[in-house]
Design a protein around this nucleic acid. Structure first.
Lengths: 234, 234
DNA sequence: GTCTATATAACGATAGAC
DNA sequence: GTCTATCGTTATATAGAC
């Protein structure tokens, strides 16, 4: 087995990403909307709320989740919930925006090598490891993006495509430096993104087959690289 | 450009798949649930209903779609709608089951060559062309499968995985005959499925880049085949 | 076969006691 | 800071006129 450019262990030790850390940032960024004064209590309960939202959305969709469902799942009354947000829609946007910020930040932190071949491997690993840590957040974003209000719909495209553009840039750099031989960096980046998404959208499949995230990273890198260096590629 | 094992033109001329034909089958299979006696009228209005369901679900999800929305979009009153189904959940299941049957049938019809290399190309093309004809139905299935009642959840897995298993079988056959050299036919089939799903889940992307379904078919075949014949493959 | 009108339940959201 | 009680609205579903 080849060495991975980034191991899950290394990634996990450098990034303490969790729902907790996202919720702390979320509380700080929305101090005006959240009426609870004690920060620790606000974060603590927001964690329960976010966990419940993601879990219930997975079962019936965000629109299908009622605030009574949410109240029951969090053991907070309806009245209490409304101290943490002003409307159901606002709750969605708080979660969405905070997750988006966190994810994009982390992806850019880990792929830094100046050799595009290595940078590509780092980016693939970082994306997979992050979605391994927060699989339900990733699939929540993918499945519920349509619930964003029209004014925020632009951001969806930005989020959905921004990581793809990041891969495109790496591929372009590799082509320019004569390392990669490919015809369409756009199709290639899109295909790569599809393979990365599969990891969190079909989680049950991989876990039932006992495939680890590092094994899958290795597979994806191999699968893509075969096409980057094959001269017959169209 | 290599010749495709199956062109879109050939596929389209053999298959007259459309929402209309699916709705006709749907009406016939649910004669007990639909109270409209004249078949033609039933089919005609069911087409409007199904189109509206898929369109509204795309915007706000099936759960987020109210029957008032549906009434407005179809120009049928609430009362009239209930002559076509007995509950919102039943409507969902009628559409889901009928689409599932149709799709699986068609996929199996087109990949028949005894050479696994060619059969694989045929299956890839058939899957892409069918999802090109009915893109919104495919993404409806993917996004809304969670709305199935628990007793039908088993079927989801069957539907989601049955086409993947079909690809697995082709790959296994190719390995046995010494044509393909791959380590894990399961990972390979999964990756292939992810690439095929990308076509209907990210439709806006491909259409804005003016990539035709045949171009994408060519790309996917190339992308996968490079890995089937590369001896370095893990 | 389709309509209008309505029954009944659940929804998001708020007010005020504690 | 959280609760209970309840507001006004909207949901699914049905009944009966045409």
């Amino acid at each position: 087995m080849n060495e991975l450019a980034l191991t899950y262990r290394d990634f996990a030790s450098r990034e303490a990403t969790s729902i907790e850390s996202i919720c702390r940032a979320l509380v700080l960024h929305n101090r005006d909307k959240i009426q609870i004064k004690k920060e620790d209590r606000a974060v603590q309960n927001m964690v329960r709320i976010v966990r419940a939202v993601i879990s219930l959305s997975q079962k019936k969709g965000f629109q299908g989740m009622s605030l009574r469902d949410l109240s029951q799942e969090t053991d907070l009354s309806m009245g209490a919930l409304y101290n943490y947000f002003n409307s159901k829609e606002e709750l969605f946007e708080m979660i969405y925006n905070e997750g988006k910020t966190t994810i994009l930040q982390i992806l850019e932190t880990h792929a830094t090598d100046e050799n595009p071949a290595i940078r590509l491997q780092q980016a693939i690993c970082a994306h997979l490891y992050l979605s391994e840590t927060l699989p339900r957040i990733f699939s929540f974003f993918f499945m519920e993006a349509k619930n964003l209000s029209p004014k925020n719909q632009k951001n969806v495209i930005t989020m959905e495509q921004s990581s793809e553009r990041y891969f495109e840039k790496i591929l372009l750099d590799g082509i320019k430096k004569g390392i990669f031989q490919i015809e369409s960096h756009q199709l290639m980046a899109g295909a790569l993104k599809a393979l990365l998404q599969d990891w969190y959208l079909k989680r049950y499949k991989f876990s039932s087959r006992k495939i680890s995230v590092e094994q899958y990273a290795q597979f994806v890198i191999q699968f893509v690289e075969t096409n980057l260096y094959a001269p017959g590629n169209r």
